[in-house]
Simulated scan of single mutants.
Amino acid sequence: MDVTSRLEWHPRLLDPTQGRSVKPRKSGLTMVIDKGLGLHAFEDLLQTSAPYIDLLKIGFGTSPLYPSDLLKQKIQMARQHKIDILPGGTFLEVAIVQKTVPEFFEMVGRLGFTSVEVSDGTIEMERAARNEYIRRSREQGLNVYTEYGKKLWGSTIDVDQLLETVILDVQQGASFVTIEARESGAGVGIFDANGQCKDEELHAIVGQLPDRNQIIWEAPQKQQQVDMLRMLGLSVNLGNIAPQDIYSLEALRRGLRSDTFVHPES
């Protein structure tokens, strides 16, 4: 078939790696953080980028700052494009501290969110409580994304603790575990104060994971994304991607940027 007759790029130009999967994906997930897009900007985002977005997080605790009808519209639009959408984990932490967890879950359901994030980046959370929030979310028909790591500057990763958290969270019903890096990508987790990846620590973690596809690595900076794709493969799950960076990341995944350019064997 002459692909040009249908105004379609040749498959090897669309994806030189020949490895990019389509939604719903089991790996190669891209999680985008929304820090306040208006309805028209959000609609434009989905019109251009929906095939490349698997998960969209309404960042931090910003969900109650929107007019409820507007937020509901955004959620419905994301669902129409088969994008998992959830409030930021910090918002559940606020609900825990404010003793309003039932009210939190009630509104999550009424607004139409498809998922929640269970995290303890700012607060301390006992294992039993973590299990309970995962279970409660699943009972409400929500997908669960948990998060490991503290948001405090200079916080590091305890490999044994991380591995235990991943195993137990998945056993309890979490779909994926996100590794904290904040929206800055510096001075937290596997990134040093300059945003550089701690390669040895990353390899130590990955080498012991039962299933690396269960992990979403927050990597908001371009060089972090490049490093992750080079070290862990083009189908690594990446999170905290800014809306304006979706296309650049997708190009990296497909070998359409020099950083991951595909050189055919001669």
Rank of each mutant, 00 (worst) to 15 (best):
R12L: 13
P87G: 10
V32E: 02
G195Y: 05
M107Y: 01
A181H: 06
F261M: 08
R12P: 02
I215H: 02
D15L: 06
L152D: 13
E200R: 02
G141E: 15
I58Q: 01
S184A: 13
V166D: 06
K82A: 09
N240I: 02
G141P: 09
H203G: 00
V236W: 00
K35N: 08
E218R: 01
V188H: 01
T62A: 15
D158A: 07
E8Y: 04
A174W: 02
Q140E: 10
Q76V: 06
Y133L: 13
K150D: 03
V166N: 05
Q221S: 07
W153M: 11
Y133M: 14
E93P: 08
L55C: 13
I167L: 14
K72T: 11
A174P: 04
I96V: 10
A78D: 06
G61I: 12
W153Y: 14
K222H: 09
L92A: 14
G154E: 02
V101C: 06
D192G: 07
L29I: 03
E139C: 12
W217M: 00
D84V: 11
F176I: 15
D160V: 13
P210K: 13
K57L: 05
F176L: 12
L163D: 14
R127M: 14
P87I: 12
I58P: 01
E93I: 08
G149Y: 01
L202V: 00
E147A: 12
E164R: 09
M1W: 03
Q196V: 15
G38R: 08
I58F: 04
Q80W: 06
I167M: 12
Q98H: 14
F261P: 08
A50V: 08
G112C: 01
Y133S: 06
K72C: 14
N143C: 11
D160T: 12
G109Y: 04
H203F: 02
R212D: 03
Y145Q: 10
F60D: 01
T146G: 11
A181V: 10
Q223Y: 03
D120E: 09
G121S: 15
E132N: 05
G59I: 00
Y148G: 05
A41M: 00
V188T: 03
Q161M: 14
G185K: 04
L65W: 07
G38M: 07
T178M: 13
F91A: 11
L163Y: 07
L14P: 04
L232N: 03
L152A: 15
P210V: 12
Y133V: 08
A41P: 00
D34N: 13
A251R: 05
H81M: 11
S21D: 13
L37H: 00
V3P: 08
L14W: 08
A78R: 04
S115I: 11
A78H: 03
D158M: 08
G189D: 06
G207F: 00
S63I: 10
P16G: 07
I216M: 09
K222F: 12
